[in-house]
Design a protein around this nucleic acid. Structure first.
Length: 571
RNA sequence: CGGGGCGUAGCGCAGCCUGGUAGCGCAACUGCUUUGGGAGCAGUGGGUCGGGAGUUCGAAUCUCUCCGCCCCGACCA
């Protein structure tokens, strides 16, 4: 391709509303342009990258035995009513009516549709297991789209859905998908980790997320220092402390603490560590009740864990000021478990605290040196409800946890029978008996993968594409070609040779200054650069430089094709 | 939805407080010079100042209202 035929829509200035590197660079390199909040146009250069990513995903999905289908973006409400998600989903589901007043939505995902397709098309157990996938646009009316392509409202996703007669068969396909995902992200040149995940609103049993590691990631991931254990912090279990509880050595006292509301306030006021303070949170229960959650002061609540508990209202809702006044008789900031007559759930770490400080259920008052058993009854609901922190013991018993940030680019689930049951998807088994199919589902955010790749691979000059994603492999740059016939014909000749040798070449035939060409090619991240100048040609030499190098290499013109083949294969 | 901010040329912004000729930089286009790291000079085009209503002799500027966008908190590929 020639730049005269393939305009590069690069911009020198960094857009003011772009926060993270990938967003800035995708705009600057001319991959995308914003149309409206969370909606983007993809320019020719961006489309080339998208196609590279899609091709790899297709290949690996096909290799893993999945079959490509294509389902509509616009979906009839009836199916969503049937699964119950028309009511559940809320405003994130974009709804619309056709001219007849019939209700539809823009698909945020395709479980309902695939289930409908499967129950019509899969008639015998002999057709199972079956794994359908598609690469399709999704729309989710996100509360707050941000970070450009990373969290847009419309995005492209590869989603696959598998159908099985047994859990063993589901596990087999799940494992196969796990491997396919590993292959895909490896081929894409990403530094990623599969981690144990929560199953979230989609529901189901086993689940892994695939995260690209990047500081700008929106998720926190916990890794074991000693083993392969890795989990989303939402999911990572905080084990019960192994140290025994200290003795109740100090005398209980009640002290005046005017205006000392937060854990930090109290910690400073009494000059004690925050880990010696007890945090009491009140949340709403199922039936208009209020439930108390107790945590060590330096720990934070894990909402996902709490939402799974019986009796707790989902989604998790903090008690109102009126509720707090009613059950505790004080304002938030002075609540404590002593004398509190509501269900109390105690975090494992909070249960081994001794001589701790907590609110006295009286404004401007706290208790000091409180002890379980002595000053309040031992709890019989001690449960893990906190977020793990760096240094916690790894849940598999090997090593401790470290935390890192990740971008979720893939997610695989064992759905079980959640949708097949609700939507009555069954086949006849060997014995002629009706059997509800069990399902798996497997997603990859294609557009997000592009953003994540940039997030992980860039420098101050621009994008550094992994070979597999690069829109072009080789940039062919003649220096002031318009001034030299010899240079022009040599470059044209090399362009043809490279193209015939199978390289994706971007030949910069614009009449622009060298510095301009260099900057453009670095910004758009072409991995390999070949520069031709009159000086070098005198000696039959061209210059080569990888995007990651800081120096040129002189290569004989006659060898350049062999050289490039080796350079590309090496990566 | 709650809190904060913004909307003026394709992009980035000034002007608004204190009402009176709509500006600067970059980009685009033309010409000349320049040509190994985002060139220089000269010139040209480009605006419903987010929309509407109001106050005023007069509104980008003051008031009201609607719309859009961005940032901070609850979702997910």
């Amino acid at each position: 391709m020639r730049t005269s035929q393939f305009p590069l829509n690069t911009v020198k200035e960094t857009p003011s509303d772009a926060e993270i590197a990938s967003h800035q660079l995708m705009i600057r390199a001319g991959l995308v342009r914003k149309l409206a909040a969370g909606l983007y146009n993809w320019l020719p250069l961006g489309v080339r990258v998208l196609q590279k990513a899609q091709a790899i995903v297709r290949e690996e999905m096909n290799n893993a035995g999945a079959l490509e289908v294509l389902m509509p973006v616009v979906q009839p409400s009836e199916l969503w009513q049937e699964s119950g998600r028309w009511e559940q989903y809320g405003p994130e589901l974009a709804r619309l009516k056709d001219r007849h007043g019939r209700e539809f939505c823009l698909g945020p995902t395709h479980e309902e549709i695939i289930t409908e397709l499967a129950r019509n098309e899969i008639k015998s157990y002999k057709q199972l297991p079956l794994n359908y996938y598609q690469i399709q646009t999704k729309f989710r009316d996100e509360i707050r789209p941000r970070f450009g392509i990373m969290r847009s409202r419309e995005f492209i996703m590869k989603d696959a859905y598998s159908f099985h007669l047994s859990d063993e068969s589901l596990q087999q396909t799940y494992d196969r998908m796990f491997q396919a995902y590993t292959n895909i992200f490896t081929r894409l040149g990403l530094n990623f980790r599969p981690v144990l995940a929560d199953t979230g609103s989609i529901g189901g049993n086993a689940s892994h997320e695939f995260h690209v590691l990047a500081d700008s990631g929106e998720d926190a991931i916990a890794f074991s220092t000693e083993s392969q254990y890795a989990a989303n912090v939402e999911k990572a279990e905080a084990l019960a402390p192994t140290e025994p509880r200290a003795d109740a050595s100090e005398v209980l006292s009640k002290e005046s603490t005017p205006n000392q509301r937060s854990i930090e306030d109290i910690s400073t006021f009494f000059n004690i560590p925050t880990s010696q303070c007890l945090k009491t949170l009140l949340v709403k229960g199922d039936d208009d009740s209020v439930i108390a959650l107790l945590l060590r002061g330096d720990h934070t609540l894990n909402e996902i864990k709490v939402e799974k508990l019986d009796g707790v209202l989902t989604p998790l809702t903090m008690a109102s000021d009126e509720d707090i006044q009613k059950v505790a008789g004080c304002n938030a900031g002075f609540i404590g478990p002593i004398g509190l007559d509501i269900p109390i759930i105690v975090d494992r770490s909070a249960a081994v605290m001794a001589n701790f400080t907590c609110g006295a259920n009286e404004n401007d008052m706290h208790y000091r040196n409180v002890n379980w058993g002595r000053d309040l009854p031992e709890s019989n609901s001690i449960i893990d409800i906190r977020q793990v922190v760096e240094g916690d013991a790894s849940p598999d018993g090997k090593g401790t946890l470290t935390l890192a940030r990740g971008i979720e680019v893939g997610h695989i689930f064992q759905l079980g029978t959640k949708y097949s049951q609700a939507m009555n998807v069954s086949v006849l088994d060997e014995n002629g008996k009706n059997k509800v199919m069990t399902m798996g589902c497997y997603g990859i955010g294609i557009t997000r993968v592009i953003a994540a790749a940039i997030e992980q691979n860039h420098d101050d000059k621009g994008i550094i594409w992994p070979t597999a994603l690069a829109p072009f492999q080789v940039a062919l740059l003649p220096m002031n070609m318009h001034k030299s016939e010899r240079l022009k014909s040599a470059t044209e000749k090399l362009y043809i040779e490279l193209t015939e040798a199978g390289f994706d070449v971007l030949f910069d035939d614009r009449k622009v200054r060298p510095g301009f060409m260099f900057s453009d090619m670095e910004l758009i991240g072409i991995p390999h650069r070949v520069v031709l100048g009159d000086r070098g040609l005198e000696n039959g030499m061209v210059e080569y430089r990888a995007r990651t190098d800081s120096d040129n290499q002189d290569i004989p013109l006659d060898n350049i094709i062999t050289f490039l083949k080796a350079a590309i294969n090496q990566q």
